[in-house]
C-alpha cells in the first residue's frame, strides 16, 4: 500500500501553486510603504542616535547619581505604595461592576443594533482618553488625592474591560443558550445561565490583567496629584534626588512583580 502510493507520487509529482504576480507585487508595495512610514516620522520624532554616543559622559554621570539607592524613607514609600495599590483595587473593581452590564449591551449577539452601536461609541470614548487626562480632570473636580486617581482608573478601565468582555460574549457557543431558551427561560435567565458561565473564565482573566496594568497606571496618575507613590516619585525627581528616585522605582518594580505573580497564580487556579 505504502510503496504503491510512493510510486504514484514519483510518477505524478505534486507542484504546489506559486503565489501569483499580483500578490507578490502587493507584498513589496506593503514593505515599501512600511519603510516610507519610518523615514517620514524620523525627523518629526527627532531621532538622533548620535547624541546618545556624543553625550555618553553625561549619561554616565546621570546614571551614577542613581546609585546607591537611598532607602532611608522606605516606610513612607511603603505607605504611599499601599495607597497606590488601594487606588488600583478600587479603580478596577468599580470598572468590573460597570463593564458587566455595558459589555452585554455592546455585544451584537445580545443587544439590538440601535443599542449596541451607541454603547460601543461611548466605550470608545472612555478608552481613547488616557487615565492621566481623566486624573487631571478629577483632581479639579474632587481635589488632590487618591479618590481622583481611583475615579480616573475606573472610567478608563471600564472602557477597556467592557470592550474585552463584549468580545468574549460575541464568541460564545450559541447552542447552550438555545438549550436554556427552550426550557421557557426569559432573556435575563438566558444570559445568566447560558452566557455568563461560558464567558466567566475569560472575564476573570481579563480583569486580572487589567488589575496588573492598573497597579502600574496608578503609580503614574499620582504624578498629576492623584495620590499614591506617583506623588512621591514626582517630588523626588523634581528635587533631583535620583538616589531616592531609584529606591522608589525599585519598590514599584517589586510591587508590580508581586501583583503579577499572585494574579498569574489566581488565573491558573481558576481556568
Amino acid at each position: 500500500m505504502t510503496s504503491m502510493s510512493g510510486n504514484l507520487l514519483n510518477e505524478h509529482p505534486i507542484h504546489p501553486p506559486k503565489p501569483g504576480l499580483k500578490s507578490s507585487l502587493l507584498r513589496y508595495l506593503a514593505y515599501g510603504l512600511g519603510a516610507a512610514l519610518l523615514v517620514w516620522s524620523y525627523n518629526g520624532a527627532e531621532i538622533a542616535p548620535a547624541t546618545l554616543i556624543r553625550d555618553a559622559g553625561n549619561m554616565a554621570t546621570f546614571a551614577a547619581d542613581f546609585f546607591p539607592p537611598d532607602f532611608t524613607d522606605w516606610k513612607f514609600y511603603f505607605t504611599e505604595l499601599m495607597v497606590t495599590l488601594h487606588i488600583a483595587i478600587w479603580g478596577t473593581v468599580l470598572a468590573i461592576v460597570c463593564a458587566v452590564p455595558l459589555s452585554l449591551l455592546a455585544a451584537s449577539n445580545i443587544a439590538p443594533v440601535w443599542l449596541y452601536q451607541p454603547v460601543r461609541r461611548v466605550l470608545d470614548a472612555l478608552r481613547s482618553i488616557n487615565e492621566m487626562v481623566f486624573a487631571m480632570l478629577f483632581v479639579v473636580a474632587v481635589g488632590l488625592g487618591p479618590f481622583a486617581g481611583a475615579l480616573a482608573l475606573w472610567l478608563h478601565t471600564t472602557g477597556t474591560l467592557a470592550k474585552l468582555f463584549s468580545e468574549a460574549v460575541e464568541a460564545i457557543d450559541p447552542q447552550p443558550v438555545d438549550g436554556i431558551r427552550a426550557t421557557g427561560a426569559n432573556a435575563v435567565e438566558e444570559i445568566l445561565y447560558g452566557v455568563i458561565p461560558q464567558v466567566m473564565p475569560l472575564w476573570v482573566s481579563y480583569s486580572l490583567y487589567r488589575f496588573e496594568a492598573n497597579v502600574r497606571s496608578a503609580s503614574v496618575v499620582g504624578m498629576v496629584g492623584a495620590g499614591g507613590i506617583g506623588v512621591v516619585l514626582w517630588e523626588v525627581i523634581r528635587g533631583f534626588r535620583f538616589d531616592q528616585t531609584c529606591a522608589v522605582m525599585i519598590m514599584i518594580i517589586l510591587l508590580v512583580s508581586v501583583v503579577d505573580i499572585i494574579s498569574a497564580r489566581i488565573r491558573a487556579a481558576l481556568i
Binding site: 447552550p176 438549550g179 436554556i180 427552550a182 445561565y193 447560558g194 458561565p197 473564565p201
Partner: peptide, 8 residues
C-alpha cells in the same frame, strides 16, 4: 449537541 452549559 446536547446544548448543556459545559462549565456548569
Amino acid at each position: 449537541q446536547f446544548n448543556l452549559v459545559g462549565r456548569m
